[in-house]
Deep mutational scan, measured.
Amino acid sequence: KRLSEREFDPDIHCGVIDLDTKKPCTRSLTCKTHSLTQRRAVQGRRKRFDVLLAEHKNKTR
């Protein structure tokens, strides 16, 4: 699936709103397109961004 077609989940996706499409970014939490500050500011996550990021990195090892 293309990035734009993915169902957005704030707990596994970057989530920064794309200015062109007005939709949240569906790249992983480790997205290189958006800064850490931008990704931390995303609302609606179950846990703090840093906790989710650490969990994500542990899963992908």
Rank of each mutant, 00 (worst) to 15 (best):
L3G: 12
R40A: 06
S4D: 14
D18N: 09
Q38P: 01
C25G: 01
K23R: 13
A54R: 11
D9C: 15
V42I: 06
K23G: 10
C25H: 01
R45C: 01
E5K: 07
T21I: 07
D18L: 10
R45T: 03
N58F: 05
R45E: 02
R48I: 05
Q43V: 12
E7W: 07
T30P: 02
S35W: 01
S4H: 12
R39I: 03
I12R: 14
L52A: 07
A54N: 09
L36F: 05
H13F: 05
L53D: 03
G15L: 03
L3V: 11
L29W: 02
C31K: 00
A41D: 13
D18P: 03
L29D: 01
P24K: 12
V42K: 02
N58K: 13
F8R: 02
T30D: 12
L52G: 02
R39L: 04
R27H: 11
H34F: 00
D9R: 07
K59W: 07
V51S: 14
P10Y: 08
S35Y: 02
R61Q: 15
D20I: 07
I12T: 14
L52Q: 04
G44K: 02
R39P: 01
L3P: 07
C31N: 01
F49S: 03
D18V: 07
Q38N: 04
V16Q: 02
L53N: 02
D18I: 13
T37W: 08
K23A: 11
K32L: 10
D20Q: 09
C31M: 00
K22D: 07
C14P: 00
D11R: 04
T21N: 09
K47C: 10
L29V: 05
A54M: 12
R6V: 15
H13W: 02
T26Y: 07
G44A: 05
G15S: 06
L53M: 07
T30S: 08
R6D: 07
L52W: 03
R61Y: 10
P24Y: 04
A41I: 05
C31H: 02
T30Y: 05
R6A: 15
T30L: 10
R39K: 13
R40C: 05
C25S: 00
R46C: 10
C14L: 00
G15H: 03
L36S: 05
T60Q: 12
